[in-house]
Simulated scan of single mutants.
Amino acid sequence: MAIAKAERLMNLALCLLGTGRPLSKRELRTSIEAYIEAGTEDSFNRMFERDKDDLRELGMVIETVESVDGDTGYVARRDSNRLPPVTLDAEEAAALGLAAKVWQQARLAGAASGALQKLRAAGMPLASETEISALEPRIPTGEAAFEPLMIACRDRRPVTFAYRRSNAAQAHTRQVEPWALECWRGHWYLAGWDRERQDRRVFRLSRITGPVRSRSGTFTSEVPDQVAVREAVAEWAGENPTSQARIRLRTGAGYPLRARATVVRGHDESWDELEIPYGHGLGAWLAEFGPDVVVLEPAELRADVVDRLRAVAKG
C-alpha cells in the first residue's frame, strides 16, 4: 500500500475513533489533509467511499447514523473496535525480536527498540540479545540517500538529487515526487514521479550522487494506491521475459526457480528439468545458485552463466 493512502486511512480511523459522536462528510473533509486537497466534491466522495470500504475490509466497525439535522454521520465506537489482549508464545516473540533487529541500521531502529521495550514491560517472553545473536537479519541501508528519501516518502515532499544512469558518464539533476522505497536483489530503489519527464520513474539509490534535498510545495501528480517497484525495475531494465529457458536443477534446491517455472519434470533421482521465462538479467540470477543449476538452452544464456561462475572462481 502506498504511504499516502496508508496515512489517509490512519487519519480517517483516528477521526472516527476519537470522537464521541458521528461525524459528517463535511466535517471529515475539513479535518483530514488529504481530503482537503482532494479537489472537486466528486473526487472527495470517491476517495472517502473507497477509504471507508477499505477500513471495513480491514475489520473496522464503522456505523452509519442519521444526525438531528438530517445529515448522514459516521462513527467507529471504541467498544466495537477494541482488540482482544495480545498474547505471544516464545516462538512468536522471538520472531518479533528478529524483525526489530532488521531495522537496526535505519531510522526505524528507535521505534523498533521502543516496541520491544513495551512488549517486555507487558511480560512477553522476548529472547535476549545473546539468544538471537546467531541470527541477525538486516535490511541493508548503507546509501546516504535512504533516510532522507524515506522521510520524503512519508511526508510527501518533493526532492531533488543528482542521478547517474548506468550508461551515463555524468550525473544529472532530477526533480522527483517520491512514492515508495523497496529493496530488490540487494539494492534499494525509489519509485516516484519525475517532474521533468512527466512520467513515473524508478531510481537505484546507489546511483544517487551527493545529497538529497527536500523542496517546498506539494505533489503535482496523484500517488498510486499500489506502487509496484519490483515490476517497474524489471520492466525498465528489460527483464520482462521474451522466451523460455531450459535448465537442470538439483532435486530439493532452488525453490525460487521452481516457483517461477512454467514446466517442472523429473530427470533422474538427483536432478529436475525446468522451463522458466527468459529475459535480461536471468543469467545473473541463475549464477547465484552455483552448482545446483545447469543451463541447457539457449546457448547464450549458458555461456553467460558459465562466464559469471568462472569470474567468481577466479576472484
Score class of each variant (00 low, 15 high):
A6C: 08
L274E: 07
K314G: 07
I132D: 08
R56D: 03
T40R: 13
L88F: 13
T218D: 08
V86T: 04
A34E: 13
W285I: 01
E147K: 05
A4V: 10
R174F: 02
A112N: 07
E235P: 05
S214H: 13
E273N: 10
E92P: 00
D71N: 08
T173Y: 07
E288D: 07
Q104A: 15
R77E: 02
G238A: 04
R29F: 10
R215V: 06
A111V: 15
A299N: 15
T19V: 06
T19M: 04
R310Y: 02
E37F: 00
G254P: 08
T87Q: 06
L88Q: 04
W188I: 14
E27Y: 01
T130Y: 10
A2F: 07
K314P: 00
A6S: 13
S166Q: 14
T173P: 02
V212M: 01
V306A: 09
S128V: 01
E49H: 12
Q226N: 15
H172N: 07
E131F: 05
D79F: 07
G123Y: 13
S67L: 12
Q117R: 14
A191L: 11
D42F: 02
S270C: 15
P178V: 03
P224K: 00
E300M: 02
R164S: 10
L9R: 07
V75R: 06
E177Q: 11
R310F: 02
I132M: 15
R154P: 00
E273V: 14
L98V: 07
W285Y: 01
T64E: 12
I151K: 03
M47L: 12
R46P: 09
G110D: 13
M1G: 14
V212D: 00
G290L: 06
R82E: 08
P241I: 11
D79A: 11
L96W: 05
G252V: 14
R78K: 06
D225K: 09
T218K: 02
R200T: 05
Y189F: 12
R250G: 08
V61K: 10
S133Y: 03
P277C: 11
F44M: 00
V176W: 04
I208C: 05
I62H: 03
E196F: 12
A232R: 11
E66W: 01
D89C: 05
A169S: 11
R21C: 02
E129W: 13
V233M: 12
G315N: 06
K52S: 03
A234F: 05
E7L: 10
G315R: 06
M124H: 14
D268F: 11
V176L: 10
W271I: 06
R248T: 04
A259W: 04
A313G: 01
E239D: 09
D79L: 13
P298A: 02
A115L: 12
A237L: 13
Y189E: 01
Q170D: 11
P224A: 03
P241F: 03
V263G: 00
N45E: 12
V202N: 01
G39I: 06
E136T: 09
Y74I: 03
G114I: 15
D194Q: 03
E143T: 07
D42Q: 14
A93K: 00
V75G: 00
A261Q: 06
R26S: 11
K314C: 03
P277T: 06
A168L: 13
W103D: 04
A162I: 04
T19F: 05
A232F: 03
M150K: 05
R46N: 10
E129Y: 07
I62R: 03
D272Q: 14
L301M: 10
A134T: 08
Q170E: 12
R265Q: 15
